[in-house]
């Protein structure tokens, strides 16, 4: 899981209202901004890419083990011209989004219901926690029996994988909203709807975002496995086909595209988070 290991917002940090900001010395500020502008985070990957290319050119890597980045790029260009690449990306992207939407919405809905109603929680939470202990990828053989290699199989697996992180973090978010704020809302005459809209939901949002970003990671992971094992289109299928014909460049291409898509999804989630949590000390820009 490449996208989810970055530091996520610790739930406890939400209560401290004005965490002291670290002072950056003036002479450092300029260079920091320059580094950020130049995308310092990209230096290392591009450096590695250069080393890899050099190694391939110097015949330190065999083409059938790991082709040069330029060869992968060439393969990408060829597939792009044939129109195959975009089709596969489109198919995989649609599967990812559909699975995320289904699993995410169900998880969000159940998380809210169980966070707001003790009755609903007693009824369903134990069951859900039990199911959570089954690794969803262990269900792959069963799912193939049920759905064959239909779209249903991928949708089911992705939705199931995405469901739990979003469910758990929504539930946690609602349950950990500061009870003093809830009491304040009631004392100030808020209706249940107003209390939900102005206190509970915004209070749970940081935690929900943690769930969303975690869920995005699981989404790609599940899709890769599902498409590799049971599919007749999509990036995973493209990679498996290429493997049969020993087209290593296309295999590597598929892996890289997965990584880029994962990064893209995470970036979108982060941007959304930054927008929605402006009030939070961790996201306050000025």
């Amino acid at each position: 899981m490449t996208t989810t290991t970055t530091s996520v917002l610790p739930v406890e940090a939400r209560r401290d209202e004005a965490a002291p900001r670290r002072e950056v010395p003036a002479w450092l500020k300029g260079s920091r901004r320059w580094l950020a502008d130049a995308g310092a985070g990209w230096l290392l990957p591009f450096g590695l890419l250069a080393v890899w290319e050099a190694a391939a050119r110097l015949d330190l890597l065999t083409e059938t083990i790991l082709p040069a980045p330029s060869a992968v790029l060439l393969a990408a260009w060829t597939l792009l011209l044939k129109g195959e690449l975009l089709t596969h990306i489109g198919v995989s992207g649609a599967r990812a989004l559909a699975g995320f939407a289904v699993g995410g919405l169900i998880g969000f809905g159940l998380g809210l219901a169980n966070g707001l109603s003790a009755a609903s929680r007693t009824l369903t939470d134990t069951t859900l926690q039990m199911i959570r202990n089954v690794p969803h990828l262990a269900l792959v053989p069963l799912v193939i029996i049920w759905f064959g290699i239909d779209e249903g199989a991928k949708l089911f697996l992705v939705a199931l994988g995405v469901f739990f992180p979003i469910y758990v973090n929504t539930l946690l978010g609602i349950l950990t909203v500061d009870p003093q704020l809830i009491e304040m809302g009631r004392a100030y005459g808020m209706s249940n709807t107003a209390l939900f809209r102005r206190v509970l939901l915004p209070g749970a949002l940081p935690s929900i975002f943690v769930g969303v970003r975690y869920g995005l990671g699981i989404m790609w992971l599940t899709l890769i496995v599902a498409e590799t094992i049971a599919a007749s289109s999509g990036l995973g299928y493209m990679a498996m086909q290429a493997r049969e014909f020993l087209l290593v460049d296309i295999v590597v291409l598929a892996i890289i595209i997965y990584a880029l898509l994962g990064k893209l999804a995470d970036s979108v989630a982060r941007a959304l988070e930054r927008r929605c949590l402006q009030w939070h000390p961790s996201f306050r820009n000025s």
Partner: peptide
Amino acid sequence: RLLPWARVVENVEVGVSE
């Protein structure tokens, strides 16, 4: 007990009848 996600003026509005 201010709502940290609401601007100062919105927090005061909490006290005004909806």
